[in-house]
Amino acid sequence: MGVSKQTIYNWESGLTTPDLNQVIRMYIVCGLNPKSLLPKRKKAVMMNLVIPIPTSIK
């Protein structure tokens, strides 16, 4: 991971938190898909999404 034992101790103790790049590297090292960090979108939310379509292009 390229971090010290003290850094990991601080994460585990809640004194500091890893940045996003470190979290992604941890997921990869553990064999997990980093995309699973993203929230799941519900179909119902997507169905209610209204995108205005321009009637003319200037």
Results as ranks from 00 to 15, higher is better:
residue 50 V to R: 15
residue 38 L to F: 09
residue 44 A to K: 15
residue 32 L to A: 09
residue 24 I to V: 03
residue 9 Y to W: 11
residue 54 P to D: 07
residue 17 T to V: 10
residue 29 V to G: 05
residue 55 T to E: 15
residue 35 K to Q: 14
residue 20 L to S: 05
residue 48 N to P: 05
residue 35 K to D: 12
residue 13 S to K: 04
residue 44 A to Q: 14
residue 33 N to S: 03
residue 16 T to F: 05
residue 20 L to D: 08
residue 48 N to L: 15
residue 50 V to K: 14
residue 31 G to A: 07
residue 29 V to S: 10
residue 39 P to T: 04
residue 52 P to D: 10
residue 33 N to Y: 02
residue 50 V to S: 13
residue 40 K to H: 10
residue 39 P to Q: 01
residue 34 P to S: 01
residue 26 M to I: 14
residue 22 Q to Y: 03
residue 57 I to K: 06
residue 3 V to F: 04
residue 15 L to H: 08
residue 7 T to A: 04
residue 58 K to G: 13
residue 47 M to P: 04
residue 48 N to D: 10
residue 49 L to T: 02
residue 53 I to Q: 15
residue 13 S to D: 04
residue 28 I to R: 13
residue 48 N to S: 14
residue 35 K to R: 14
residue 15 L to A: 08
residue 33 N to R: 07
residue 51 I to P: 07
residue 47 M to Q: 13
residue 33 N to M: 02
residue 32 L to Y: 06
residue 23 V to T: 03
residue 34 P to C: 09
residue 31 G to F: 02
residue 13 S to R: 07
residue 21 N to D: 05
residue 45 V to H: 13
residue 23 V to F: 00
residue 44 A to F: 09
residue 47 M to H: 10
residue 36 S to C: 03
residue 34 P to G: 10
residue 23 V to N: 00
residue 57 I to M: 14
residue 28 I to C: 08
residue 15 L to R: 12
residue 17 T to R: 09
residue 18 P to G: 03
residue 42 K to F: 10
residue 50 V to M: 13
residue 12 E to H: 03
residue 14 G to K: 01
residue 30 C to T: 12
residue 50 V to A: 14
residue 7 T to Y: 01
residue 15 L to E: 06
residue 34 P to V: 06
residue 6 Q to Y: 05
residue 26 M to L: 12
residue 21 N to H: 03
residue 55 T to F: 15
residue 18 P to Y: 02
residue 44 A to G: 11
residue 27 Y to E: 04
residue 35 K to S: 11
residue 6 Q to G: 03
residue 43 K to A: 11
residue 13 S to Q: 09
residue 41 R to N: 11
residue 50 V to E: 14
residue 6 Q to M: 08
residue 15 L to T: 09
residue 36 S to W: 07
residue 25 R to W: 05
residue 25 R to F: 06
residue 57 I to W: 12
residue 52 P to E: 12
residue 21 N to G: 07
residue 42 K to W: 02
residue 43 K to I: 07
residue 8 I to E: 01
residue 37 L to R: 05
residue 55 T to Y: 11
residue 58 K to I: 08
residue 41 R to H: 05
residue 11 W to P: 02
residue 48 N to F: 12
residue 30 C to W: 13
residue 35 K to M: 14
